[in-house]
Every structure is written in C-alpha cells, then in structure tokens.
C-alpha cells in the first residue's frame, strides 16, 4: 500500500495497534457463530420487525413508512447504545492486560467502538443500496430526481462523524470513571434504557407538543437520529436552528472525554 501521509514511528505503531485490536474485536465476535456476519443485518432487522409490529398495530405512531423510519433510527441508536454499554466496563474487564503491559489504553475503547462502527456501516450501506434500488426500480425516479436523492444521502457523513465523536467522548468518560467508581456501569446500563425513550427513534419529534420539543435537543442523540432520518428518508429536522446545540455539546464531551481519560489512565493500575 502506498503511504500517502508520512507517519512517525510512534503514530504508525498506534495505528497498527488500534487496527489489530479492532480486527480482534470483529473476528472474535462472530468466529463461532454459524450465521456469522448474517447476524449483523438480522439483528436490527428482527428488532425493527418486533418494534414495528408493536407500534404500528397496538400503539399506532403516525409516521409514514414507519418500518423504514424505525430502521433508520435504530441503526445509529444501536451503535451508540451497544458501544457505550460495552466500553464502560471494558478497562475493568481487561484488568489482566492493563496490569501487565504498557500499551495505549485507549486502544481498548477505540477497538470496541470501531468494530461496532464497521458493523454499523455495513448495515447502513445495505440499507442505502436498498433505498436507491427502490427509487430506481419501483418508484422509477427520473435521473435528476435520483441525483437529488443521492445527494441528500450525503448527509449521513456529518451524521456519522457527530455520532462517532459523541460515542468516543462519552465512552472515554464512563470507562475511565468506572475504574474507580464501579457504580458507573450500573448507572450507564439504566441510563441507556431510559435514553432510548428520550430519543426520537420509535416516535417522531413533531408528534410531541411544541413547547417541549426544544428540551429534546439537549440530547445530542436527537440531532444525530434526526440527521439520519433526513438523509435516508427526507424527513425535515423538527427544529433546524437547534443543531448547533448538539454540535457544541458533542465537541465539549469529546474534549472532556480525552481530558478525563488522560488524567485517569495513568493510575488505572492502582484501582484494578
């Protein structure tokens, strides 16, 4: 492979290390499962069907294309929730390694997040192919309509970036603090459960009373999920001018995540 950017030895090692850890995560997860990588698509698909069934027929939510709506929101949400619940106790689980060798500790967290990202991206690409296929073959879009449609899909890139920064930042905070305070792990698993209902995945924000809507934008995941809804389904964001709140919050959390991790990681050995 041609190296475009000249990396120092240390940076090269860091990249190799994080990518080897990530490959380990990816390989180890499906290694002994018969259906292997199929679970990657099957999982959100089954989740969508179950939830779609409940919220379409028992407690109807008035959103067009509800199953697709669910799927588009569940993908980023699952990435976030699974990453956060898995990274929070990760330093504690890897205590044997941490107490025995010196290596970049953040590799443990990043490998979990990047392996989840890999799975998330595959599912997302499959969904986008299916969507374009649908517009092309079934709804027989004209060429210009198709171009516009594909251009709007480019919004997934800033959405993924925000989602990734937020997940890394928050994971660094919870996993670093969990080394000293093991309660964090319990708090996080509970919080993720409640957080799901505070994020417009199973409902759309515009179904709620207007005065309460701004409150939801204090949750950066609201903005992220709405960006995915926009990119994949063309649903406009409920309150476009609140996007900056999420951006500021996400950058702040990312910054504090690195700060807290740098401060705490020196003394992980003392507490594990």
């Amino acid at each position: 492979m041609k190296k475009i950017i000249k990396l120092s030895k240390k940076q090269r090692y860091w990249l190799d290390f994080v990518s080897a850890m990530t490959q380990k995560e990816i390989k180890a997860r499906y290694k002994r499962a018969t259906f292997g990588f199929l679970w990657l698509v099957l999982n959100p698909l089954l989740q969508m069907l179950v939830m779609g069934f409940v919220f379409q027929f028992f407690v109807p939510v008035r959103v067009d294309n509800y199953f697709l709506f669910l799927f588009a929101g569940l993908l980023p949400w699952n990435f976030f929730a699974q990453s956060l619940t898995k990274t929070t106790p990760a330093f504690f689980y890897e205590r044997n390694l941490i107490k025995k060798a010196k290596f970049p500790r953040e590799g443990i967290i990043l490998s979990i997040i990047f392996s989840n990202l890999f799975h998330f991206l595959i599912a997302l690409i499959l969904l986008m192919i299916a969507l374009i296929g649908d517009k092309l073959l079934i709804e027989s879009y004209t060429f210009m309509q198709l171009i516009n449609y594909a251009l709007r899909m480019l919004w997934v890139f800033p959405a993924i970036l925000l989602l990734l920064l937020f997940t890394i930042g928050l994971s660094l905070i919870t996993s670093s603090l969990n080394v000293k305070f093991r309660d964090i792990n319990f708090i996080v698993s509970l919080a993720v459960m409640l957080w799901f209902y505070a994020t417009p995945v199973i409902y759309a924000l515009n179904l709620l009373p207007e005065f309460i809507q701004p409150l939801f934008y204090l949750n950066p995941m609201t903005t992220v999920v709405e960006m995915f809804h926009y990119a994949l389904m063309g649903l406009p964001m409920t309150m476009m001018n609140f996007v900056w709140v999420a951006i500021v919050l996400i950058i702040a959390i990312f910054y504090f995540g690195i700060k807290i991790f740098n401060k705490e990681s020196k003394n992980f050995d003392d507490w594990l």
Partner: peptide, 10 residues
Amino acid sequence: LNGLIIGMSK
C-alpha cells in the same frame, strides 16, 4: 496481537 501489546511494530 500480543507482539503489538508488548510494543513490537507490525
């Protein structure tokens, strides 16, 4: 994996 953990390059 183990080689990288103890600090060897790839």
